[in-house]
Design a protein around this nucleic acid. Sequence first.
DNA 1: TCCTTTACTTGAATCATTCAAGTTTGCTGC
DNA 2: GCAGCAAACTTGAATGATTCAAGTAAAGGA
Lengths: 147, 147
Amino acid sequence: MNDPGRLREAGLRVTAARLAIMQTVSGGDHLDVEAIHRGVCERVGQVSLQAVYDSLNALQRGGLLRRIEPAGSPTRYETRVGDNHHHLVCRSCGRVADVDCAVGHAPCLEPASDAGYLVDEADVIYWGLCPPCRAEAGSAQPDSARV
Amino acid sequence: MNDPGRLREAGLRVTAARLAIMQTVSGGDHLDVEAIHRGVCERVGQVSLQAVYDSLNALQRGGLLRRIEPAGSPTRYETRVGDNHHHLVCRSCGRVADVDCAVGHAPCLEPASDAGYLVDEADVIYWGLCPPCRAEAGSAQPDSARV
DNA sequence: TCCTTTACTTGAATCATTCAAGTTTGCTGC
DNA sequence: GCAGCAAACTTGAATGATTCAAGTAAAGGA
């Protein structure tokens, strides 16, 4: 289904701003709100940052977007929803990459012991260094070789 | 080893404030900074909030405390460090409970595909409802029975 | 085409956290 | 035991992502 259809299906109105958000997010790579805002403005002209926040929340509630909130860095969004995939986050540059669920289908929803909690979602973030930052960290002489 | 020893081992000075922080965090249940601050002040008198932030960062860097940062709620701290355990977080009240790693020893460090990332930590959060909030949600007539 | 509801705009507020500058204190060496 | 230095603490202000509030514009069903 296309974006307008998905929007209507979620009970949301179809607006230029929202379509531009969908395009920007699906064309980008785990963008943050600021980057999405820039992308939207490039596509359809001035849109307020608050409208972007508002729409992102609506789209997320409607299941059209997934929100990623790594500790200590601003929220990011992606269009890959409905599957149980996880994320690799770079400690150095904040870049995010998708990882398929390590264990299979939806196993992450079952902790060893749930302490009586009614679990509905598992959030798995692998922290590390992305390839570019790895290369940089590896080649740079610590605290030197920098002009 | 006791707290003063652990502090020295981490290259940190032993102060009343820091000992009070260790006591408060280990006596509490995944407390946030505000709660830790209150606990510290009860034990040793007025201590500034900034000193608490500063010390918590130092203690975390020194490996004496573990920081938990669930999306959308303030940072919490615990004294259980060095093992690979995860957390259950209540969507309703924010309560946090420990869960042992589902898969065994340190398997969570190995995503299905690492996309070239050098992974050093896995952060697993199970989202759901804690028993009290479950009970409340179950018994309450939606949008009624509330005075 | 009208009307209602939802979306958007502008502007201000919030909240956890950090930064900065100056003072105090723990602790190492004498 | 005392001096001196670095680490820790205090006070006060700043930051930055996000939300709230009130008014205006526009989507889409009647």
